Structure formats: C-alpha cells, structure tokens
Simulated scan of single mutants.
Amino acid sequence: MDAGFDVGARLRQLRLERGLSQRELAKRAKVTNSSISLIEQNSVSPSVSSLKKILDALPVSISAFFAGDEPNHPSPFYKASELTEIGDGQLSWRLVAARRPDRRMSILHERYPPGSDSGEDMLEHDGEEGGVVISGRIEITVNGEVEELSAGDAYYFDSRLPHRFRNTGDEECVIVSANTPPTFSDGGEELHHG
C-alpha cells in the first residue's frame, strides 16, 4: 500500500460520513472493534482482504478508497492515467470522471482484444448509448439485429434493448462511447482491477 496515503484517516472519514461508530462498522464487517480502532490510529496496516471486508461494509470500492473524493470544483480535464478501469480483466472499459459529483452521463474509452465479448448474456439497462469505432472492427447485436462496424462507423440505441459487443476480428477494437443516465459508477457492483 502507498506509504504516503493515510489509511487510518481515510477510513475514519468514510466511517463518520456514514454516521457509523467503530463498533457498528466492526459488526457489519465481521471484524473486532479493536481492528477498526488500530487501523484508524495507523497502529496496524490491514491486509487487502481485511480492508476489502471493511470497505464492503461501508460500501466503498478499494479504488474509490485510495482515489479519495473528487474535489468540489473538479478539473474539466482528465489525463489517460486518471481514467477509472471498470472492465473485467479481458475487456478494458475506462470511465471518464468516475468520481465527479452529480455526473449525468458515462463516457468510456473501450478496448476489445481479438475474440473478446461483452458476454453470452445480452446486456440490458435503462437509458441510451452511442459510440464511434476508433480502430478495428466490432460486431454489435441490438434486439436481434447484427452489424459489423469498423473505424469511423457509429451506433446509437435504446439500452433497454438486449445488446452485445463482440470482437470477431484479429486486431484490437477501440471505441469511445457515452451512455445516459450514467449506468457505470465507481463503487458498489462494478468490476475492478486492483
């Protein structure tokens, strides 16, 4: 863990924001009261698994814990290294402004390696989504309609319709997409690296 990061202070801040006593958080996380106290005092450094147990009880993702809160007046600009990875380990979906308060859309920089697939189960969620293929080719299925798109081609559809993305080619496909309302958020059920 980052030696310059104050794990204890961050945990205390998140616990107090949620109005939880050390005892209540310990009960929810199924750890001892003294564990929470010692971590908050920086007397012990928690293992990743015990920190994850505690954060799940808040609930806060590990990435959000270490990223901290977005400033009150977030910068309108994000370096590539500041995008939040929410992919599944094979697909890379990097979310712009993941912790921006009151975000009303999701913008994703998506990478699909050859042979990758958004999954056997069709995706369905509220809202609308669209995107432009930057490089490579992608097969998109929307409500039974199948189309293969290549660089410069685009899509836009109602996200409640069952849909799926598959890279059937032999080179990586890169897409920049947006959806609204913001289906992807940094915390809770998202898939995460690290």
Rank of each mutant, 00 (worst) to 15 (best):
A178H: 09
D186A: 14
S116V: 03
L91C: 01
V31F: 01
E40K: 07
E85K: 13
Q41M: 13
M1R: 05
D117M: 03
R18C: 11
D158V: 08
P113H: 10
I107K: 12
H125Y: 03
I134L: 14
T180L: 10
M105N: 08
W93Y: 15
I86E: 01
E128T: 09
S118C: 10
A178C: 13
S159M: 10
I134N: 04
W93H: 10
V60I: 14
E120C: 09
E190L: 08
F65H: 00
R137V: 13
G136I: 00
E190N: 11
E110Y: 00
P76M: 07
D117I: 05
F184A: 01
S45Y: 14
S177T: 03
S150A: 12
N143F: 10
A154T: 11
M122L: 14
M1D: 07
H125A: 08
C173Y: 01
V60E: 11
V7Y: 10
S45G: 09
E82I: 02
P113M: 05
T32F: 02
E110W: 02
E171A: 12
R28L: 13
I39M: 12
V96I: 12
P74R: 03
T183G: 12
A98E: 04
C173E: 00
S135C: 06
Q22N: 04
G152L: 01
R18M: 11
I134R: 08
R104I: 12
E17I: 02
N72L: 13
L58E: 07
L11T: 00
G119T: 11
S118R: 06
S43Q: 15
Y156H: 14
G115C: 05
S106I: 00
P101W: 06
H163Y: 01
A151S: 13
Q41C: 07
E124F: 00
E40L: 11
A98T: 05
E110L: 13
G187P: 08
E145F: 11
F157A: 03
N143R: 13
P71M: 03
P162C: 06
I138F: 01
P71G: 07
F184L: 12
N42F: 10
G87V: 07
L16I: 09
D102C: 08
I62K: 00
K53R: 15
Y78V: 15
S177A: 10
